[in-house]
């Protein structure tokens, strides 16, 4: 056992945004169903359609429901800050906040940055592909939708099964043109692979678990490993990976920096972070990207020094 207790890392927070009906709750339900040992704190505006298996409920105190397996669900109403302050971060691997339909994820992210113990790992904004054009043109909603999308690291075009291919292309192109700093994926029934949304399985121990072989569909997403034999300017590496043109959606692993110190690199959508790595890990990155856009060789070339 390591004698020097490592400083606990801040608890990663995923903010799930999007207008009413975009599929946020369905996504949350998938995450809960596939929590798979990771202790999630799910913060929702209201319990509403949250599918909590009654058999898993260990207890409820007011707005907080404790589930077996270490997950907790909390309805925060209009006071998200208090809800976050009351969470015991030591018992949680990851927080997922479902913002209300008109909330601005950017504002939540900004307030969160002030609270000690948390770090935003990604802002995922869902859109209902069958209604987004109508909402984006609505006189009451247009600017709210625009501000929500502008704050996203990953936009999930949801309910793609409800529209034809032509429409899908049109919306996809519009989103990519409009929100150039953000990555866009197409899904249906909110089936965003868990690995694209969550960053941690366990937070306090070095995480050697692969992010491969999980719940993503190999025909849509491609996963591969990059070995990184040299020393790198880690921020430069991260920025290249986060560039929206390369089709990469999720990167996780360890890179040795120019001073020879091992760093953990996390990327979700277009957001990345670099932190000192736990001891005893070896370098290498696990990458997941869109099969049709993302090519292993191209990514490798990206990282070659020029």
């Amino acid at each position: 056992m390591d004698s020097s207790e490592p400083q606990p890392l801040p608890c990663p927070v995923t903010i799930v945004g999007g207008y009413l009906g975009s599929g946020k709750t369905t996504l949350i339900n998938h995450l809960l169903a596939k929590a798979d040992g990771s202790r999630l704190a799910i913060l929702v505006n209201d319990f509403g359609d949250l599918a909590i298996d009654a058999q898993l409920i260990e207890g409820q105190e007011g707005d907080v429901i404790n589930l077996s397996g270490g997950c907790v669900c909390c309805s925060y109403g209009n006071d998200l800050t208090s809800a976050l302050m009351q969470l015991n971060v030591n018992d949680i691997d990851q927080v997922v906040i479902e913002s209300s339909g008109v909330a601005l994820p950017g504002a939540i992210s900004s307030s969160l940055s002030l609270l000690g113990g948390y770090v935003v790992s990604s802002v995922v904004v869902l859109v209902d592909a069958s209604t987004i054009q109508q909402h984006a043109g609505d006189k009451y909603l247009a600017d709210t939708i625009e501000r929500q999308l502008a704050s996203a690291d990953l936009i999930a075009m949801n309910k793609c099964d409800l529209i034809n291919d032509e429409k899908k292309r049109e919306i996809h192109d519009w989103l990519r043109r409009q929100y150039t700093a953000c990555k866009v994926i197409e899904v249906q029934e909110s089936e965003i692979p868990k690995v694209l949304v969550l960053v941690a399985s366990t937070r306090t121990k070095p995480d050697n678990r692969s992010i491969q072989g999980t719940d993503h569909d190999a025909s849509i997403y491609r996963a591969f490993t990059l070995s990184l034999p040299e020393k790198y300017d880690v921020s430069v590496v991260a920025e290249k990976l986060a560039y929206t043109g390369n089709g990469l959606l999720r990167v996780k692993g360890f890179v040795e920096d120019l001073n020879g110190v091992m760093q953990t690199l996390q990327m979700v959508g277009s957001r990345w972070s670099v932190q000192p790595a736990p001891q005893g890990v070896s370098s290498g990155l696990i990458c997941i990207g869109l099969s049709k856009l993302c090519d292993e060789d191209q990514v490798k070339k990206l990282l070659e020094k020029n």
Binding site: L20, G101, V102, Y140
Partner: peptide
């Protein structure tokens, strides 16, 4: 939430606290 011409000092429009459909 104000209509045109918006705020006198040019501040951006405000916030909705409920979704219209709700």
């Amino acid at each position: 939430r104000v209509k045109a011409p918006g705020y006198y000092n040019g501040a951006p429009n405000g916030l909705w606290y409920i979704a219209p459909d709700q």
